[in-house]
Structure formats: structure tokens, C-alpha cells
Amino acid sequence: MTNQQSHPGAPDSGDDPTRREADLAALLERLLAGAPGRTQKDLATEAGISYPTLNAWMNRTRGTSRIDPEKLRAMVEVFRHWGVPTTPREFFEAAGRPIPGPSGDEREARLLKLYRQLPESRQRALLKDAEAMLQISRIT
């Protein structure tokens, strides 16, 4: 497993303090402590994540290597809205995910414009290539 989350049944998975300091559960615990009066349920609701899923991440009973990047970004935005400083990099690292490059509206608009100019067969090929690049980035 390439992420830093423990998984159920892993021997001594909860006894490694280094692992606990670097994983998503530890990050969420720390950030929630910096948001007095806010709960896991508040975070789940505002980030658009089901409470059972968030709770499983917090209890380290569900891995984090496949979390949708938009969910990680949503949690960053919730904490920022609550006045708790954090960064996407911090979340992606804690989840054991590759850190995506910056994406700006201009870059995304350019990519979409190019995509729309391609014939349908090339659009499908581009999507396959992009999915392959994403898979490779998750491995390395």
C-alpha cells in the first residue's frame, strides 16, 4: 500500500507514532482542534462527504489513497472558511496522494478549448491518455 494510512487487520498499525503524525486522520484531528465548536459532522456536511466515510477516515478503518481529489480540496476550503490555515499540499500528502499541479481557470479553459476542437475519436484517445497519466502518477 503506497499511502500512509493503516488498514484494518494490519499488525501494529495503530502503534506507529510516525504513521499517526503523518496520516489524514491525524491532520483532521489537529485541524478540528483548531476549529472550536466544529465537529466531524460539520466538516462532512460542509465538504459534501458522508459522515460515515469521514468517520472511517478519522478512525483509520478506511484507506485514503483513492479519495477523490475534489473531496480533499473541499475539506481544505471548509477549514479555511472556518479560519483554520491549511493547504491542499498538506491534505494530499496526509492522504498519501500525489500532489496535483496548480490548475487555474485559464489553463483549464485552454485545455477544454483544445479538447472541443478534436474529432470524437481523438477526444476518447486524449481521455485514455489522461487516465493513464493519472494512474502512473499514483504509482510513482
Rank of each mutant, 00 (worst) to 15 (best):
Glu70Ile: 07
Leu27Glu: 01
Thr39Ala: 00
Gly104Pro: 02
Tyr51Gln: 12
Gly37Phe: 05
Glu106His: 13
Val76Asn: 01
Asp16Ile: 06
Gly14Cys: 04
Gly37Asn: 12
Thr61Asn: 13
Pro85Gly: 09
Trp57Ala: 06
His81Ala: 11
Met58Tyr: 08
Pro85Gln: 12
Val78Cys: 13
Ser103Leu: 14
Pro100Arg: 04
Ser65Asp: 14
Leu32Met: 12
Phe79Arg: 07
Arg30Lys: 15
Ile49Glu: 02
Pro52Ser: 11
Pro102Glu: 15
Leu72Lys: 13
Thr87Lys: 00
Gly104Ile: 06
Leu24Tyr: 08
Asp105Tyr: 03
Leu28Asp: 07
Gly34Asn: 12
Ser103Asn: 07
Arg97Met: 15
Ala35Leu: 08
Gln40His: 01
Met75Cys: 07
Gly63Ile: 06
Arg107Tyr: 03
Pro36Tyr: 01
Glu70Asn: 10
Arg60Gln: 15
Ser50Asp: 14
Arg80Trp: 03
Asp16Ala: 05
Pro17Ile: 11
Ile99Pro: 00
Ser50Gln: 12
Arg30Asp: 12
Gly104Leu: 10
Pro100His: 00
Pro17Phe: 05
Gly48Pro: 11
Ala47Glu: 04
Gly96Glu: 02
Thr86Gly: 04
Thr45Asp: 03
Thr18His: 04
Pro88Val: 08
Thr53Trp: 01
Arg62His: 14
Leu111Ser: 09
Gly14Lys: 12
Leu24Lys: 14
Leu28Glu: 06
Pro36Leu: 09
Met58Thr: 11
Gly34Trp: 05
Arg38Phe: 02
Thr45Asn: 03
Ser65Gly: 12
Ala33His: 08
Arg89Tyr: 05
Gln40Val: 02
Gly101Arg: 13
Thr87Tyr: 00
Glu21Ile: 07
Asp16Pro: 02
Pro88Trp: 07
Pro98Lys: 06
Pro69Met: 05
Ala47Gln: 09
Ala25Ser: 15
Gly101Met: 02
Leu31Ser: 03
Asn55Lys: 14
Thr87Ser: 15
Thr18Gln: 10
Glu106Pro: 00
Ile49Leu: 07
Glu77Tyr: 01
Ala47Leu: 06
Arg19Pro: 01
Val84Trp: 01
Asp23Tyr: 06
Pro85Ser: 13
Glu106Trp: 07
Ala109Ser: 13
Ala56Ile: 12
Ile49Val: 14
Gly104His: 10
Arg66Gln: 15
Arg89Ser: 03
Glu90Ile: 05
Leu31Lys: 15
Pro88Leu: 09
Thr53Leu: 13
Asp15Gln: 12
Arg89Asp: 14
Glu46Ala: 03
Ser103Cys: 11
Val76Arg: 12
Pro88Asp: 12
Glu70Tyr: 01
Glu90Leu: 09
Ala74Lys: 11
Gly96Phe: 00
Asp16Trp: 05
Pro102Ile: 09
Arg60Ile: 08
Ala26Trp: 08
Asp105Cys: 03
Ala74Tyr: 00
Pro88Asn: 09
Thr61Arg: 13
Trp82Ile: 07
Arg62Trp: 01
Tyr51Gly: 04
Val76Trp: 02
